[in-house]
Design a protein around this nucleic acid. Structure first.
Lengths: 328, 328
DNA sequence: GAATTTACAC
DNA sequence: GTGTAAATTC
């Protein structure tokens, strides 16, 4: 049996807003480690992977592994019945054909109890390889969303180029061309040589926590320019930039990378911005992009294969990620 | 002749927004006591009864009784020509075939004059019986609206169950089931035995006025729990809970009641929420529900017959209230 | 919260 | 085709 308690309904609402347009049905895989959802998007082009870790629930109990097949549209409808500050308890009996949800107002003077029918979903569970990425960009998720929205007005795809100085997003279309260059924030230049460039979802560090005085090695290249005094610890790929207010831009670069992606999908990924102040874009040539949002309760990852290099002039659809091997 | 002056056009606007979807035409019955409108909804399932009392107008004069047949859609259009803070004067000559409206800005630097054609409407005037209700729930009108909206996403009808501990709204549908339980606020437990459970539209008490130090009898059952310290005076059925900020939930119970109603209609009633912070739900078994909003200028009542008990599984339309006798 | 757009209903 | 209500966006 499952009983998981979440302090703020708003977290779940934001999660569903973030993925419901990409995925309509999926299994909530409940284990003693937490709740995970992994699914291809409806056109089998992108992969969504959500992890909510058990420790970050207000309380969590899951006696046995169970995949709960949910329709995300229905789940969204029911979550709309919760106010943002409500405490949410997810409940499922071992043999349940329904997911129970209890919404309690902070003052405990209102209790909503809802039950949603479950469905059987064949789960092609993809083990996601622990890729070493050539380039990892950490930036404000809001800024990422803005750039996607702006460039989507111009063209269908965006070229993302990561270099030592910064990252450039550019798009071409009928009305015109556009590009946005984000320069790396001061004091965060981590060029090649560092072997910390990896995407490791099992990393135990706290997310969204600033630890300003625990900067490790690698500070030698840093010089104090009169830039915004946001110093990012940038400890690993899967970790978003610290979030005092607005995260700066951090680039960890093994190798220069330039890849082109469908803006339709990136814009969809960017809808997760309310979940986390920072987003990381992880790229290697000819490997699917990983767009990752780390928030207090867990991690939300999106994978998208790059477009083939420039034949078809942006008209070619993104590569489908149908098989696990495609993720390599 | 009629000449009635209203300080705030917004009150009339909110009133029209509240009922225009239910009723398209009706008679404004003008007497020296005030202005009343009573009409069945367009499908003759619900009854709307509005009373604006003469004393609560800024000035009021009505020499002889006259029913002014108005099209509420047209009236809404004309009221949109008034700003919320405008002073509105309604004018009608004794033999008038038109209703005159004057909108004056608070600074008196703008005057709008409008005239709306009247129509002849056969008025089947229903004397509404002064029912004693088994259960009277007073609660935040906004919360009532929220619950109707939430449950309408799940099913077509809602079961309302009033008991001593609280009131439960529940609905069942394809996606799932849902229920909301509101607990009675602390210090307001008024169980059976009290003979103050009646719906009396001629009650002279002030509405929406807190009189905190004039609590009458009936406080004996009250114990001080460490709940929110809103103590409601709960003086009578037709009186909404006091409204410092958010009214708590008050239940006056003669007898436990459980009735099922069409959510489409209840959601429509709930549109009156902007008129009053509190709403009262008055129920007896097999008798139409009374949903009542008390505001400074008067009272707005909605009556709706309950659905027949559970054959047809929520598909049966609500009972029409075609005849007065049905209201008993 | 307001304004716009879209969808539905008359 | 018009007008209103709901959904979405700013």
């Amino acid at each position: 049996m499952l009983e998981a308690r979440v302090k703020q309904a708003s977290v779940l609402k934001k999660l569903l807003d973030a993925i419901k347009e990409l995925v309509t049905d999926g299994n909530l895989d409940c284990t003693d480690e937490g709740i995970a959802l992994q699914a291809m998007d409806n056109s089998h082009v992108a992969l969504v992977s959500l992890k909510l870790v058990a420790e970050q629930f207000e309380s969590y109990r899951c006696d046995r592994n169970m995949p709960l097949g949910v329709n995300l549209t229905s789940l969204t409808k029911i979550l709309k019945c919760a106010k943002d500050n409500d405490v949410v308890t997810l409940k499922a009996a071992d043999d349940a054909d329904a997911l129970g949800m209890v919404f309690e107002s902070p003052k405990e003077d209102r209790v909503g109890e809802y039950e949603m029918k479950l469905m059987d979903i064949d789960q092609e569970h993809l083990g996601i390889p622990d890729t070493q990425y050539d380039a990892t960009i950490t930036m404000s998720s809001a800024e990422f969303q803005r750039i996607c929205r702006d460039l989507a007005a111009l063209g269908e795809s965006v070229k993302i180029e990561a270099s030592k100085e910064g990252v450039r997003f550019s798009s071409e279309g009928e009305v015109g061309n556009g590009s946005v260059l984000l320069k790396q924030s001061a004091g965060t230049d981590r060029a090649s040589g560092s072997k910390r460039v990896k995407q490791d979802p099992d990393d135990d560090d706290e997310e969204e926590e600033e630890k300003p005085d625990v900067d490790e090695e690698g500070e030698d290249e840093q010089d104090d320019e009169d830039r915004p005094k946001k110093r990012k610890s940038a400890n690993g790929t899967s970790k978003a930039a610290p979030s005092d207010d607005e995260p700066g831009v951090t680039i960890i670069l093994e190798k220069q990378v330039a890849l082109t992606f469908s803006l339709k999908y990136l814009s969809n990924f960017a809808k997760s911005a309310p979940l986390a102040k920072a987003v990381s874009l992880n790229m290697s040539n000819d490997v699917p992009l990983l767009v990752q949002f780390d928030f207090e309760q867990g991690t939300l990852q999106f994978f998208l294969a790059p477009k083939v290099r420039d034949h078809g002039a942006g008209r070619s659809p993104p590569l489908p990620l149908t098989h696990l091997s495609d993720l390599r």
